[in-house]
Amino acid sequence: MNWKAKAVLYKNIPRIAVCFEKNTALIARIKTFEDARWSASKRFWHLPDTEANRLHFKVPLAHTLLPNQEGIASITVFKNHLSSKRYSPNTIAAYCDALKSFLTFFNTKSVNDVTNEDVILFNNEFLLKNKLSASYQNQIVNAIKLYFNIINNTTIDIDKVHRPKREKKLPNVLSKNEIKAILTAHSNLKHKTMLSLIYSCGLRRSELLSLKPSDIDSKRGVVIIRQSKGKKDRIVPLSLKILEMLREYYMSYKPKTWLFEGQTKNTKYDERSLSNVLKQALTKSNINKPVSLHWLRHSYATHLLESGTDLRYIQELLGHNSSKTTEIYTHVSTKNIQQIKSPFDDL
């Protein structure tokens, strides 16, 4: 196996980075390791920094990059607890990584001796010094509160573990002309259909790739989104225009297990490949904004609002738990703002 491996801090979490030239067999092999992930920005695969992985990839042992034995045992307890409550695998991985980062910082201290002052120290000396985001800090807080509630730690007051001040960022929205340019940029039918379905139904990337042919209910005119974020099912309307595109796509590709499959039959289309499909569309349509797939979902919601759709229906279509999450689109809708006349025009 022709690879290079080293210990790294990936998003300030101890990981083992593994680099090798693109090879189908090697990719399939590294995917067999638990929690193996690909970093598109760093261009390497990375795995948990465990003693077993260090030995396998011949990376020198360095226990200072890990929690102490008590901390490692605590993470196992935490993981088992989350699993028993049926948290999603992604949530379990995120929370365990967050707790591991926190316990690694205090690997010379017993878990039972951790105090509220330690949380503040961690925020200042680790999160802020490394210029980590408020969203990551909030994830750490979620993990800390949940974990210390489980073990009934008496030295830390969970209610006094504060969250970072929430950033008030507006969602990124494209104009209808920009959307049209992106969706018509590809001549490849599969690529065009995937991007069009994301926008026409306001789907998340994972929701699109988890669709099965049977989830397209043409008789009722809906798409069934199963067990999405928060393990919820929902339905969204299926436009006649996208239905015709889907029928043409189905006749050409004849997918079996998943609606959009990769080069190997019965396997989901790759997330990175889907992101590349969007990048190619942006290049072809000469759009120089840093557009992500989620921008299509934001644009769908905003365009619905601007066309007069009630905010309550948009909340249902997007699968939001709280109406406050959906209300953010009122701040980017230009329908009413464009009717306001600037006093500059009267000068």
Rank of each mutant, 00 (worst) to 15 (best):
K212T: 14
Y136A: 13
S175N: 07
P171R: 13
K169W: 03
K131T: 04
K160V: 12
C201F: 04
I150R: 11
L127H: 08
E178T: 04
V236K: 01
L195H: 02
E207R: 01
K160A: 15
N152Y: 03
H162G: 10
L211K: 09
E167G: 08
V222Q: 02
D157H: 12
Q137H: 12
V222G: 03
R166Q: 14
S239I: 05
L146C: 12
D215S: 07
I198W: 01
P164I: 06
I156P: 05
L203S: 11
K231M: 08
I144P: 00
S196T: 15
R247I: 10
A185D: 11
E248H: 14
K229L: 09
Y253C: 05
V161W: 07
Q137G: 03
P171Y: 11
L211S: 09
T155Y: 08
E248A: 15
I120P: 00
D157I: 14
I182E: 09
V119N: 01
C201I: 05
K190T: 11
A185K: 12
K256H: 13
T184M: 14
K229C: 07
S133A: 11
R205N: 13
R234C: 01
D217H: 02
A134K: 15
T193Y: 04
R205L: 14
H162F: 13
V222A: 05
I156S: 07
D233E: 01
L246Y: 12
K145H: 11
V222H: 04
S175E: 12
L195W: 01
N172M: 09
E167T: 12
V119I: 10
F148P: 02
N177R: 11
S210Y: 09
I179K: 08
V222K: 03
Y253T: 07
L189P: 10
N142M: 13
K256S: 15
K190G: 14
S196M: 02
K241H: 11
I225L: 07
R204C: 02
G221H: 03
P164A: 10
K169S: 15
R226E: 09
I235F: 01
S252T: 14
I242D: 11
I235N: 00
K180D: 14
A185G: 12
P213H: 07
A181I: 07
N124L: 04
R247E: 15
I120W: 05
E178R: 02
N149W: 06
K232A: 00
